[in-house]
Design a protein around this nucleic acid. Structure first.
Lengths: 226, 226
DNA sequence: GACGATTGACTGGTATGGAAGTATGGCATA
DNA sequence: TATGCCATACTTCCATACCAGTCAATCGTC
């Protein structure tokens, strides 16, 4: 969606502008380094500069934009360090969570995970990147909930935002087939009651997820910052 | 510091107001549930509502305040779930980090950690809560840096903000002696090259750090939210 | 005295204007 | 032709005014 339609009931104007810009940034429609201005966005949205300014302040607070006085507001470049830190944190946390899942295995969960894997395969076959990203997140969320720590997923999801931008910007590079196989290996280890195996499969999965990062950074250096 | 002095050079007015309010919230001077208004803070700071509004938007983006239209801006209650999630994430991540430290032990680090422990004892003896919190954070930061992942500490520090509010609000309850002993056990396991022991000591430390949370929540229920 | 309606004060949200700083283009001069 | 200066347009930041909604106090009626 590259246009915005402001409605005067429900969410505030500033919230609507934030949601619009936030979605466009995460989907890679507003590329890292691109320049916006309050006046320009206000014109597009048919509102005053004020709520646009407020949306910018919020986006800046989450690291997605950078305001340079007198110059403009720039879409934040993807921080390689932030992506790497998020990966390391996810590996540590999700390997603890998978051990908790294994210790209290619910067979209905296995059936649900199998259904999710099937949906992932289908999304991959029709090359629906958006759906695949959503299903991937859903898989990990299900595991966090099964571990009794659904709230932790909210935190991890926040950390993933730069990673999700990366995936949208470079949609073709990620090997969805391999990700699905790795998800499958995690589920299989759970099925066999192999807690160590499940942890190792999760660690492998989250370690490999960034194998292509150096290549990506080389192909689009202007999108990245340390 | 309960007053603010706005200077017209250097940081923007909105930034100064944000820093002032942010510090007061973290130190517990503005208690959870307390009500502020743009008009009131603008009056105190001698500026228009506009930069105050901007500071509120930023504070709200970080979860420290909540804006209720027509009603006021309220200092956020401490989310028990957020504190618990942060603890779980810290345990997972810092146990991975301590294994990395142990695998590449630098003896100069041990000397530095010993010095930090001595400083913690001293701060505890003179009951300097502020200094103790700073030194506690420094200890953990040193370990993250030693593991080669100083950036990860920045993320963990962000997660700790609710925990740090808790510590300021309930300064007397945390047993600093026990925390220092636990830090000491971590350093000793490192000295002995015992990676498993270091991980277990770190897990125990980060697991016990919230033992008093139920009691605290009972004694001041109005400060907390789920 | 109790209840409901009205009024005024207060709140956040938005629009508009002015100030200060930055960047670019045009014109004059060497 | 190249360089420097000036004017203009653009930017964000802050101040002020207006609007709609909320709440508490007061007044009128039963």
């Amino acid at each position: 969606m590259d246009h915005i339609n402001i409605v005067t009931s429900g969410n505030s104007t500033a919230q609507q502008v934030y949601d619009w810009l936030h979605g466009r940034i995460l989907r890679g429609e507003l590329e890292p380094g691109a320049r916006l201005s309050e006046t320009e966005i206000a014109g597009q949205a048919g509102v005053s500069r004020q709520p646009v300014r407020e949306a910018f302040i919020r986006l800046t607070a989450t690291g997605l934009t950078e305001v340079r006085p007198q110059r403009g507001t720039f879409i934040g470049r993807i921080s390689i360090n932030a992506v790497l830190s998020a990966r390391l944190i996810r590996e540590a946390v999700e390997s603890d969570l998978i051990r908790m899942v294994s210790a209290n295995l619910d067979y209905e969960l296995l059936a649900r995970l199998d259904r999710q894997l099937a949906a992932q395969r289908e999304a991959s076959e029709r090359q629906d990147v958006e759906a695949f990203i959503t299903l991937d997140d859903q898989f990990h969320h299900s595991l966090a909930v099964a571990a009794g720590h659904g709230d932790v997923w909210d935190v991890l999801e926040g950390l993933k935002s730069q990673m999700n931008r990366l995936r949208h910007i470079t949609a073709r590079i990620f090997d969805h087939q391999k990700l699905i196989e790795q998800h499958g290996a995690i589920v299989q280890a759970l099925r066999e009651g192999d807690a160590d195996g499940a942890e190792q499969a999760m660690r492998l999965h989250l370690r490999e997820v960034l194998n292509d990062l150096p290549e990506i950074a080389r192909s689009k250096p202007e999108f990245f910052t340390k």
